[in-house]
Design a protein around this nucleic acid. Sequence first.
DNA 1: TCAGACAATCTGGTAGAACCAGATGGCGGA
DNA 2: TCCGCCATCTGGTTCTACCAGATTGTCTGA
Lengths: 232, 232
Amino acid sequence: MTEKNLLPELTAHLYASSAAESGRTPSERELAEHFGVSRGQIRETLAVLEAMRIVERRAKSGIFLTARSASVDAMALFAQAGLPLDPVRIYEAVELRKIHEIKAAELASQRATEENFVRLEEILAASERRIAAGEPLAEEDRDFHLEIVRATRNTVFYNVCGVYYAVGLRRLPIYFGDPSRCAQSHAEHLGIYDALRRRDGNLAQALMNAHLQGAESYWKGLLDARVEPAAE
Amino acid sequence: MTEKNLLPELTAHLYASSAAESGRTPSERELAEHFGVSRGQIRETLAVLEAMRIVERRAKSGIFLTARSASVDAMALFAQAGLPLDPVRIYEAVELRKIHEIKAAELASQRATEENFVRLEEILAASERRIAAGEPLAEEDRDFHLEIVRATRNTVFYNVCGVYYAVGLRRLPIYFGDPSRCAQSHAEHLGIYDALRRRDGNLAQALMNAHLQGAESYWKGLLDARVEPAAE
DNA sequence: TCAGACAATCTGGTAGAACCAGATGGCGGA
DNA sequence: TCCGCCATCTGGTTCTACCAGATTGTCTGA
């Protein structure tokens, strides 16, 4: 039971127990006692948090939360830790996602190999089974989109996109809670797949744009609705 | 002298002293002795390396290098550590940069504020001084491009772009070693600035595309020339 | 000769104590 | 009220000590 991953828990605890004004967190010794682990464990975890610029350690002074980081790594960690993500950050990530994936659709239409198409077909088949069973889509959606990015044959691109999908995955059940949305999303995926198959880059781009537009407005609406005064 | 940042040095050392086949690195105790620090220091640094997926620690077995990571964080660290970057990765990063910044130019043309324009003017003035003095451009180039991304008002976007500039900065002296290239680059920057000022998104995009095209072919030529058989 | 069992050794994981020196904050004196 | 001193706290760093599984090498028996 000691092999649990401290990172998310510590992150959550730091935000829960930091001083409102200064952002100063409990000391390493206090944290160690709180989690029932050694100070070394805490320091190791804090080193990672510091590398992600989520926290700043000032020698002989204390540990301070930095201005909320907007790195995708940090956002993914926040999501994992169950921390509320800044709605603005989420919307920004969605905008970035559109930038990435519309271009990815174009590149994939030129570079996708048979292997990519086979993978896409498998994912689409899995989606179909889900829908037929009346179950909501889950990682099938992410897999479909990431496979297209992979088809660009740009591993840096793929890695960057892969990270922020960790942010969204936890929220997919909300989005796909509506069965009709699942069906429409799947239908759009089929259209994109067809366009890629026909190597029609312009069509693939246009369809991806429309597809993401739907998701974007959904999130925008959701975020506008729950304007948290506490946020920011 | 003990406050040096172990991260780059350790990273370099791990790659230098790892077993060719298994990727297994020296043990924590050996590393501690080699660097003259405590095992705790080594473990703290390894935790960061593991979070970046550069290294994998297997309990009671050893530390192993993972397949070379393509995350921009890892690439930045490699550059800092003086490790040879996989030419393919660099080219991929350049491609991603084009995707980002062409779109950034369009968004910036719509969203840039007076503050952004003032910053851009300052950067351009600094560039001019450099060129007049016969000095090569340096961070001015990065600052110009990053300010445009910042003008999109998307902090996630800005953060993502900011990271991979850490990769390129070390190589700028090579690119700008040629004075004529500095002058041309500066002229193109002026054109982009004008287009943004006039809120002409299409022109800004086109000019940014042309501007980055030059850099891209430069790097492509350079990389094609030094095909390292050892790489990949 | 070789395969299998056993034991010494190595390794990461974790805890805990100890010391340093600068930052901090409260108390007392001017 | 304000200034300066000092006890206390804090991160930075090192060392020692165990644990238990992985690894490696040796020895034994067939």
